[in-house]
Design a binder for these strands. Structure first.
Lengths: 142, 142
DNA sequence: CTCCTTATTGATAATGAGTCTCAGAATTTA
DNA sequence: TAAATTCTGAGACTCATTATCAATAAGGAG
């Protein structure tokens, strides 16, 4: 599942060594398509039998984010989530404020309007956040 | 500038008392159209001659946000900003990643696409965040 | 106006995600 | 193999925000 070449490339680019701990973090990140926070990832790594310190988890995540192997999400609740879907197309997020479920959405029209707004101002777009906080169907029928 | 009736209504609704400290916080929030963090607001209140503790500033801000007298912004840098523009129409934000300047934008097409996405999923929209992180023209010519 | 009950305040401790430090361990290079 | 360099883990630290709690103030009742 995990593509070690991607990790190797990123580490090489950063002038960092390929270590078993960094591989464990990458393994765990590739293991699911969830949107987990650092603590959850840390706990899941331990669960899977590996032993990597919290500090190393954070440090490795930083490298992976910087090299776009994973994406960092800020849902505004004080802890960052990480998702591994690098290969998939760009998408934004729908977040259920009740159960915390996260889904993805993508709309070409919105994307092009964004570009138009930026262009009109004469700015350069670096990145964007577009999150729709909702109550999902399951939660609304409860 | 500050509309005390709005504050009074909100406090009444929450079953809270009208105090000079809460009025000072409201005064300061109404004094500018900036997007300040709690510490800046706290310092500006002291600057203006009033004396309100940090704890009370935070507590009052919470009440105001809850009652939609001010809006809370999360720019992903670890501290919340607050803006007072309640009377004005809905808008989202353009944030310069270099100088931190914040501008506002609004696009009806994007808003309607959002609604369409929500409707398609059968969800209920609670709120949304749409932030475009950019490099502004001033910063890009430096 | 005064007493009494209840809410508020401010100082400070606590929290929690994330970062930093540094000595010991591991790896790479000479 | 030795020397140099990078990594790691444990725990200290940071910083925004929240909680605690004794002292103070507000809002009635009489």
């Amino acid at each position: 599942m995990a593509n070690y070449d991607l990790l190797k490339q990123a580490l090489k680019k950063e002038g960092l060594r390929y270590t078993i701990q960094r591989q464990s973090v990458w393994d765990e990140l590739c293991a699911t398509d969830d949107h987990r926070d650092a603590e959850e990832i840390y706990m899941d790594i331990r669960q899977s039998g590996s032993d990597v310190s919290r500090a190393t988890v954070y440090r490795t995540i930083d490298v992976l984010v910087k090299n776009k192997l994973i994406r960092k999400l800020d849902l505004g609740d004080g802890r960052a989530r990480y998702e591994h879907k690098i290969d998939t197309a760009h998408h934004d997020h729908l977040i259920c404020v009740q159960c915390g479920k996260i889904e993805e959405f993508m709309d070409d029209l919105i994307e092009s309007r964004q570009d138009a707004i930026i262009k009109k101002h004469g700015y350069k777009l670096i990145r964007h956040i577009h999150q729709l906080f909702i109550i999902c169907d399951e939660c609304s029928t409860k």
